[in-house]
């Protein structure tokens, strides 16, 4: 008798919990957004929710690779993603993205022409540019006395245990290849092995391999040099005036992040509404102003603080950009990059 009573009680409890949660279930349609960490002014999400009566389920990732693996393995059921160029290229090739209906995204007209029809999406059928930027070195002027012009400084004994590297394989291998004078899209195994040797040689000098926490570390003066994305550099320099950003002379990576809709999306209409909303001038301005990355949005750019526009970290000159290369999808050769990064990290 006692056991049955316990069982009944347990069942009752389960039913109660289930019905309780059902009561609080949001009736609004849901939009699942998967973006980089620290890559939006979060008040914008609330504005969208209010205006369109759609609930946004907002998730973040830290590298293209972990986003790709999660979406590929069927996790998340996301409606809007924010991958970078080479990952978009790969996802298009693998049929993971839906073509966009640009009639539903009229604000696309505000995107500057030079950011349309880029190599990763030649007909611009799948993506709407969100931000762009470069990879470079941020350094603390008080701690680094030597001139910072080359990636070589990240291999300088004088700054042992003062260097932060990005825990992102394409970026870290890419800058090493650039330092060695190779293309950051190389498919030459010898060049890649040389990059591996260099990274292993650098390892004792590296303080840590970090992600978004690089910002707090550099602002607090925990390290002297770090490899960072330009927009993060803008943010850091705003917080700590001792910091400066350089695109080394060997050249670097120029990247574009764009909004796409994966084939797993069940709510394409809302997803397009969201993309269009983010391309609205005042919203695009708000995001650009907040996160510090460079905007491809013509009208939003006009609203920006002239000081930011003249900041060469955010809007580098043509000469600097000419040295930069865009990542390409490497297809099956990516396995070699995976292997090399694993071997560097495991060392």
């Amino acid at each position: 008798m006692g056991k049955i009573r316990i069982l009944c009680l347990a069942l009752l409890l389960i039913v109660a919990v289930l019905s309780f949660s059902a009561c609080f279930k949001d009736q609004r349609p849901v939009l699942n957004v998967y973006n980089w960490g620290d890559y939006i002014d979060e008040s914008v999400i609330a504005e969208f929710e209010k205006e369109f009566n759609i609930r946004v389920n907002y998730d973040t990732f830290s590298t293209n690779e972990d986003m790709y693996v999660k979406v590929k393995s069927g996790g998340g059921n996301y409606d809007v993603l924010f991958p970078s160029d080479y990952t978009i290229e790969r996802m298009i090739k693998e049929g993971m993205l839906q073509k966009l209906d640009f009639n539903n995204i009229p604000n696309y007209q505000y995107i500057e022409e030079q950011f349309k029809n880029l190599d990763y999406d030649p007909q611009n059928a799948y993506s709407v540019p969100y931000m762009w930027g470069t990879v470079g070195i941020i350094y603390n002027k008080k701690k680094v006395t030597k001139p910072v012009t080359s990636w070589q400084i990240l291999w300088d004994q004088d700054y042992a245990k003062q260097i932060l590297m990005l825990d992102s394989q394409r970026d870290s291998i890419g800058i090493t290849l650039k330092m060695l004078g190779y293309s950051l899209n190389t498919r030459n195994l010898k060049e890649l092995e040389a990059a591996k040797e260099a990274l292993i040689k650098q390892k004792p000098l590296v303080l840590a391999y970090v992600g978004d926490d690089v910002k707090d570390k550099m602002i607090a003066g925990e390290a002297a040099l770090a490899v960072v994305w330009s927009g993060d550099a803008v943010y850091m320099m705003r917080e700590n005036p001792d910091l400066a950003y350089v695109i080394p002379e060997e050249g670097s990576n120029l990247w574009f992040d764009a909004m796409v809709i994966p084939t797993t999306s069940k709510n394409k209409e809302a997803a397009e509404k969201f993309i269009n909303f983010l391309c609205r001038t005042e919203i695009a301005y708000k995001n650009t102003d907040y996160i510090g990355y460079s905007t491809p949005h013509r009208e939003a750019k006009k609203l920006l603080d002239p000081e930011l526009l003249s900041n060469s970290a955010a809007y580098p000159g043509a000469k600097e950009l000419a040295r930069c290369e865009v990542f390409l999808d490497l297809g099956d050769f990516l396995k070699e990059y995976d292997r090399i990064w694993t071997e560097v990290k495991a060392r």
Binding site: T63, E65, D66, V69, K70, D167, Q169, K203, V206, L207, A208, Y209, V210, D338, T342, K345, A346, R347
Partner: peptide, 18 residues
């Protein structure tokens, strides 16, 4: 700081990144 890869990190890396 990601410098001392342990077996757990290796497994995590294989599943999440590679």
């Amino acid at each position: 700081g990601g410098q001392f890869t342990l077996i757990g990190n290796l497994i995590e890396q294989q599943f999440l990144f590679v």
